[in-house]
């Protein structure tokens, strides 16, 4: 009887040792679950990219406006200097190169520059002209966030002889994959 009891007790004793042995894996499991949960929650909450295309397109338009205006007056040479049109990006210190990702091939931007007489509203010869990917313009007016973002801005400006002009700038930024990820 004593032997049987002793056997049962020793068997039970070994099981208990097992329980003690497996306690630390529970600790690790909790650690990983909690850490994984926190990482997942943060990724879920902040994982959606910020859509900065509107800001980028506005900045592009402002940069072009600054490029053609000097001390509040229109640079009149832009009307006569052919290099302004042919080397527009260099003239305004712009760079339309996009990041080497998502298969982009520097086709993510479009800028159009027009200038017309304030009284007659007629465009000057050779204007408007554009730089960048002209296909993006087809999407303007669409409200879907998966389409490129368009900004159309006009402003009133004088030259140094007080002649009045209207400058019209269209700037478009695509970069949909990076800004409008689902």
């Amino acid at each position: 009887m004593d032997r049987l009891l002793e056997f049962r007790l020793s068997s039970f004793f070994r099981n208990k040792k097992g329980a003690e042995k497996y306690l630390s894996p529970w600790w690790f499991a909790i650690l990983f679950i909690v850490a994984g949960g926190i990482v997942y929650m943060v990724a879920l909450f902040y994982g959606k990219p910020y859509d900065i295309r509107e800001v980028e397109a506005n900045l592009l338009a402002e940069k072009i406006a600054d490029c053609v205006v000097e001390q509040n007056y229109l640079k009149t040479e832009i009307l006569n200097d052919p290099e302004f049109k042919t080397k527009f990006l260099e003239y305004c210190d712009l760079n339309f190169n996009a990041e080497d990702s998502y298969g982009w091939s520097n086709d993510q931007y479009y800028a159009e520059f027009g200038i017309s007489d304030f009284s007659t509203k007629k465009d000057f010869e050779g204007f408007p002209f554009y730089a960048g990917n002209p296909n993006l313009k087809d999407y303007c007016g669409q409200q879907d966030k998966n389409f490129p973002f368009c900004v159309e801005k006009s402003f009133y400006v004088l030259d140094k002889t007080n002649k009045q002009y209207i400058v019209k700038i269209i700037s478009i930024v695509r970069k949909t994959e990076k800004n409008a990820k689902q």
């Binding site: 002793e6 007790l9 039970f12 004793f13 099981n15 208990k16 329980a19 003690e20 497996y22 306690l23 529970w26 600790w27 499991a29 909790i30 679950i33 909690v34």
Partner: peptide
């Protein structure tokens, strides 16, 4: 040996506590 058995019971209780705790945490 009786004392040891009682200690084991304590270990069983502790493990069950952790199992329940982990379920609550999940």
């Amino acid at each position: 040996k009786k004392a040891q058995i009682q200690n084991k019971k304590a270990q069983v209780g502790e493990t069950v506590t952790w199992m329940v705790a982990i379920l609550i945490i999940i």
